[in-house]
Computed example of a mutant assay.
Amino acid sequence: MISIKNLNKFYGSSKVLNDISIDIKAGEIFAIVGHSGAGKSTLLRCMNGLEEYSSGSLKVNSKEIKELGKEQLRSFRKNIGMIFQHFSLIQRKNVYENVALPMQLWGYSKDEIDKKVKELLSLVGLKSKLNSYPNQLSGGQKQRVAIARALTLEPQVLLSDEATSALDPNTTTSILNLLKKINKKLNITIVLVTHEMDVVKQIAQKALLLEHGNIIGFDNTEDLFLKPDEKMKEFLGEVEVVPKKGVNIKLYFPKKNAHKSFITTMARELDMDFNIVWGKLEEVNSHIIGNMVINVKDEEEQSVIEYIKKHDIVWEVL
């Protein structure tokens, strides 16, 4: 669906994207994550031709963006919907008119527009608000209108640029659930830019982590959180405090065995007591994953490691 190879982007002499290579599959929900200035919005805007890239390749459905002429680019953008942080609704138009606007600009008939607008407002849960104006809506309702508008031309890809950043946590969850519903029902590819890791956990199947225009993480979301590398830990602000005495072993539990009582079973079978330093379970993309740090005596280290190796557990000595 989207194939990016060795992509570079300069603003003057400043390099904002450095050798980006990723593939996004059709129907996938993909997150681009990073702090302010990481280059994530620039990368997103390259995907629909709003930004030119300096070198490398960016193809959407096998079409190289930089090779498209003006009319070709206009036609190409018809297949790319986009939603923004601050909704970008026209204040003097009501909900119906805001959603209908893209179809009007492309010359659709009134009957086609009326049918599509009402279908989409029903999909996003705002059928009763078609005559309301933006200043009469909550933030979440405004974003739902923006999502409906982005879907009017039946795009294959939906780009989301910090679309939940201006919303409270409960509203954010409702919008993310709506996006998941749209992804499943319409089989639309969703690429979202965010700096919020909770957003990534809730919705993304795969994530790209950017820092100063460089890729510092790229994997299935569950794997990124299950066993984060040093860059990921730094990004998350995780500081691991462990005892100085004994051996500290960190265990990672993937979704298929996150609920198993591994520690209890190991303690019983080895006839040992372990100190549990800390542990956590969390939901990532509708799956439960977890990790735990145990502290064992020096003389028990080898027995414990040999036992762990016999089971489907990822581990490391801290």
Rank of each mutant, 00 (worst) to 15 (best):
T42V: 08
G39H: 07
D168T: 04
V317S: 03
Q141M: 08
K63E: 12
D168S: 08
I289T: 06
R149I: 01
K181M: 09
I175E: 05
Y133P: 12
L73F: 03
L58S: 09
L130N: 13
E211I: 00
K127R: 14
Q156K: 15
Q202N: 15
N6I: 00
E230R: 12
Y11S: 04
T265E: 15
S122V: 00
C46S: 13
A166E: 03
P228V: 05
D168M: 06
V33H: 10
L151E: 10
K15I: 01
K118N: 14
N275A: 06
N257L: 13
L123A: 12
V314W: 11
Q72M: 06
S55W: 06
G39L: 07
V239C: 02
K206L: 00
L186R: 14
S55N: 12
S41D: 04
L50W: 08
E52D: 15
I147R: 09
N6A: 13
G279N: 11
N187R: 13
K142F: 01
E162P: 04
E112H: 09
I289H: 09
G125Q: 09
Q202Y: 06
S55G: 06
V117A: 10
K184W: 01
I313L: 12
I24P: 06
Q205W: 01
N131P: 01
G81I: 09
K9C: 05
F253H: 10
E222T: 13
V241D: 14
K110S: 14
D23R: 14
S3M: 04
T221P: 02
E300H: 13
V95N: 09
S303W: 00
E71D: 13
T172Y: 05
K129A: 14
Q156P: 01
I203K: 10
K309P: 00
K9I: 00
Y252G: 05
F274M: 03
A150E: 04
S55E: 11
E230F: 00
E28F: 07
S122L: 09
T221D: 08
I313K: 10
T265C: 00
I147E: 03
K129E: 06
N275D: 12
R268D: 14
A146G: 14
D271P: 03
Y53D: 03
K127F: 09
A100M: 06
K5P: 01
N94K: 12
E71M: 06
A166K: 09
H259S: 15
V242S: 08
E282P: 00
N285L: 00
Y252R: 12
F274R: 04
F225G: 11
P254V: 01
I2C: 08
F84M: 02
S62H: 15
G81N: 10
V314M: 12
S122N: 15
N18C: 12
L105Y: 15
G27M: 05
W315G: 02
T173I: 12
S128M: 11
E112C: 02
Q91W: 06
L159Q: 05
N295G: 07
A38W: 11
S36D: 09
L120I: 04
G49V: 02
L137I: 07
M272F: 12
K142N: 11
D114C: 02
H212I: 00
T189G: 03
D312M: 07
A258I: 00
L17Q: 03
M47A: 07
A267S: 15
L120S: 12
L120H: 11
